[in-house]
Design a binder for these strands. Sequence first.
DNA 1: CGAACAATTGAAAGAAATCAACGGTTGTGG
DNA 2: CCACAACCGTTGATTTCTTTCAATTGTTCG
Lengths: 265, 265
Amino acid sequence: MQNSLTRKLATLAELSPDDRQAVEHALTATRFVPPKQTLVYEGDTPDVTHAILDGFACRSKHLADGGRQIVAYVLPGDFGAFQGDAAVTLDYSVTALSGCLVAEIPRTLMLRLLARPPIAQALWRLALQEASILRAWITNNGRRDSESRIAHLVCELYVRLRAVGRVEGNTFQLPLSQEDIADTAGLSTVHTNRCLQSLRSQSLIRFKGGALEILNPNGLAKLCSFNPGYLTVGMDESFETAALGGIVPGENELSFSRPRPQAFT
Amino acid sequence: MQNSLTRKLATLAELSPDDRQAVEHALTATRFVPPKQTLVYEGDTPDVTHAILDGFACRSKHLADGGRQIVAYVLPGDFGAFQGDAAVTLDYSVTALSGCLVAEIPRTLMLRLLARPPIAQALWRLALQEASILRAWITNNGRRDSESRIAHLVCELYVRLRAVGRVEGNTFQLPLSQEDIADTAGLSTVHTNRCLQSLRSQSLIRFKGGALEILNPNGLAKLCSFNPGYLTVGMDESFETAALGGIVPGENELSFSRPRPQAFT
DNA sequence: CGAACAATTGAAAGAAATCAACGGTTGTGG
DNA sequence: CCACAACCGTTGATTTCTTTCAATTGTTCG
């Protein structure tokens, strides 16, 4: 129960004390990784998975033209490279953004964890949750304008960090440079800078020394039609219904009201 | 071995004849679904999964402003909504694009399939492959220009359809409207039209009655730096090294050559 | 202090969206 | 059989959004 991975898995499935202990025991070689250090590279086929017990990392892809696209943020309780039981060539790199407390899980131990049905279930749900976030990002980059993209990203990080206890009031540490944000939202750094200025000038967010404060959660959520539903999977109670206005958990998205032909029995 | 789902799973893990038969038996209520029909809606919590045995479907998300983002194509052998064993509220709709042969797998049967380790392994790998595609799409929408986006999409569909035997020569059926492509690539229909014209005028692709022919695979792959590696997971041999120039399987991406600090023991 | 890096600014160029029509095809009903 | 609606693809003109380029200002740190 002590570390963030066990805690996260416990929100995704009913884990026995024995299951939890198995997770704890799977964590080997726990150590501190400084910012900017890359844990695994695109093209590697690692035989360990990293669990980020604390800190902030990202997964990124590198393009032929030198560009970079961040494809996921790895928060406390997440896996750096999440490959389940498979030995797979990674299509992304994993890099620490802040200092990170990182444990390794050898694949053999991962296999043993997957043999426990409750843990396997939790890992399935984790995979589903991650896929759901990826879809939200595709939508973000494909169909939202620049300001909304950034706002949506902030909302998502707020909800996810809140779920792992990294939010105080409406403030959380956000160890991202503007270039990181740009490489997430598919924008130039210059334009990212201007969008952030715009969000600040609307009194929606504020910075103060590595921390981001959401000044107007409702306004921010409305700006980007943020609907946190995609962050919730199964029995996931970690996103408690919050006091936080528009971001958690109400309906901000227009309710879906298309014809439902030939309902499906 | 007869249907495309069994065939696909067999490429992802070693399935015994018994395993295969279990998959076959899990397929219930097989039927034909006409184009444009939606199988499940965003917000639903279905207790069946659909297997697309033949045809072409998509997953899409709907935005508050009426926009649409296609977040995945579902090809023969894929699941419409892939939720493993979890009863989850879907964050996307599944809609047939062409006529589709669709089977249903009740969740109870899915649970029984997951109890078979080889099948569970295949499904894990399928999930990993899907996640990898999602990351490629984020990168596409975030960091590629409009023409490359469309080219990359065409390359991906080519490789995936080829793996399930739906490509003749360099030609395959592509039941997408330009609006569908626009909603995939995050572009307007007008601009999509112009990009397609450009690709045709470069003699890279050609249309003839619902079918797309890739005239110059190398050129198309180079235009968008297409690297098919992300479509291959584990023991996946379905993407045989092809005669098809740049698209399968060589290295088109610049090899990754960044500093590798403190290699990781 | 100076180097290195991150944030900021202004101006100009470029990419893509929007607006408004128009042509072609298909399917339907009179 | 033809008129017509509906849908899809196409085109041109215009506007809007983003990027690019080129500096400049802070900040941190050795």
